[in-house]
């Protein structure tokens, strides 16, 4: 148990660091990939990192899920959970709207690769 206590002292902010890693990876995927489905996957990683950002400060070590019961004394903070429940559902709504746009773009331009669409439109102009 000593080892685990040391771990929580040295890595007390590792949740935040992994959150930041996820934010930055989502951003990197969105910038570097021209395929729109992969861009949307990057966007959903960006959105998912926000769940960690909100829920990890509300966790209390030794606490339990916020369902009131006489057997327990310490509960984690319920407010971030409520906010993130809303965020998950809104995230799926935006993902489905984005995918519908991608399907329409495929029907109209014949490709879902950003650079291929740009190249085609340049050739049409010339």
């Amino acid at each position: 148990m000593e080892f685990i206590n040391d771990l929580s002292i040295y890595f007390g902010r590792i949740n935040h660091w992994v959150t930041i890693f996820l934010i930055v990876s989502g951003l990197y995927i969105i910038i570097t990939n021209s395929n729109m489905i992969k861009k949307l996957i990057g966007l959903s990683i960006f959105q998912t990192s926000v769940y960690l950002l909100y829920v990890s400060p509300g966790k209390i070590i030794g606490g339990t899920a916020p369902i009131i019961s006489p057997q327990f004394e310490v509960y984690s903070n319920p407010l971030p959970h409520v906010l993130i429940l809303t965020a998950i559902v809104v995230g799926v709504a935006t993902l489905s709207l984005g995918l519908a746009l991608v399907v329409r773009i495929k029907e109209e331009f014949g490709s879902i690769d950003e650079e291929a669409i740009l190249m085609n439109s340049f050739e049409d102009q010339e």
Binding site: Y51, G58, K59, G63, I84, I88
Partner: peptide
Amino acid sequence: VMDAVDVGMTEAAVG
């Protein structure tokens, strides 16, 4: 693991 059981269930079903 972080005690957010409702959020975990929603994420497993929806995400």
